[in-house]
Design a protein around this nucleic acid. Sequence first.
DNA 1: TATTTCCTTTACGTGAACGTCAAGCTAGTT
DNA 2: AACTAGCTTGACGTTCACGTAAAGGAAATA
Lengths: 145, 145
Amino acid sequence: MTTKMTIEPEQQFSITELSAMFNLTPRALRFYETKQLISPQRIGSRRVYSKRDKGRLALVVLGKNVGFSLDEIKEMLDLYDLRDGQKTQLKLTSKKFRAQIQKLVEQKKQIQNAIEQLSHLCDQVENAIDGRDGPVKLTETTSAR
Amino acid sequence: MTTKMTIEPEQQFSITELSAMFNLTPRALRFYETKQLISPQRIGSRRVYSKRDKGRLALVVLGKNVGFSLDEIKEMLDLYDLRDGQKTQLKLTSKKFRAQIQKLVEQKKQIQNAIEQLSHLCDQVENAIDGRDGPVKLTETTSAR
DNA sequence: TATTTCCTTTACGTGAACGTCAAGCTAGTT
DNA sequence: AACTAGCTTGACGTTCACGTAAAGGAAATA
């Protein structure tokens, strides 16, 4: 008794289909291809994207959303592709990954900081609304005489 | 006896001085000036930056670090400059600020998400290190089978 | 067969945020 | 007076991440 092998049709997508899924343009996908971020199959001259391509693209978008450059993303993808390599290689990979993670952690702190600063400024403005129309006292960063 | 009014020399900075403080270039400051983000005094033709200019620049850098465009930053600075304006104006300002804050909150989530995804990938790679047999082992952990 | 639809490559254009000269002024030092 | 250090204003160049035609091929449909 076989478990549940239903020979799935191995989903495929055209360039416009896939780009639409990620709210991108076909042009963007072609561009990523020239940058070697994805390399779909071809049927004739047409690109056919697999589920795996879709997964990679998801990572690309993820990276973009947090401010990584396409070059940085490519490097990480390339490293990940080597995940069945030698121990030395894997160690280098994990090291680079951890470094990027650290960058993200820092970035998150920066954003939290910005949120607080902006909230503060916003509070000032809103206090000015309720507290009648008078000048507001400033913080330590921006002081006008 | 005055409290502690030591008639501070009202710190001023040259363009290279100020740019160095924020790890920027003089060119960047001039560029920000054309974009109306800061407008230092002039003594003769030379720019002289005040403490207030420094404060504004700090906000610019803060904004840049979290991915705001110079145009967005300018808009916020301009709005903040109108903080002694009419109630209607202030309400609009606070609304726009809150919107930006919301953007930052979303961004922070994205980053947290990316951190988790990357950590997961990283774990995979590191598990592979201990599970797999590589030829070279400068390992400090348990030597693989 | 003719038309439409979707795709292809090639190639020039764009906006943001500066970088990088070039040429010239000016205040202070030698 | 000559020189140097630090500034000034142009003005063109650069990188990134695509946008935007233009010209044409192949397949599905009328």
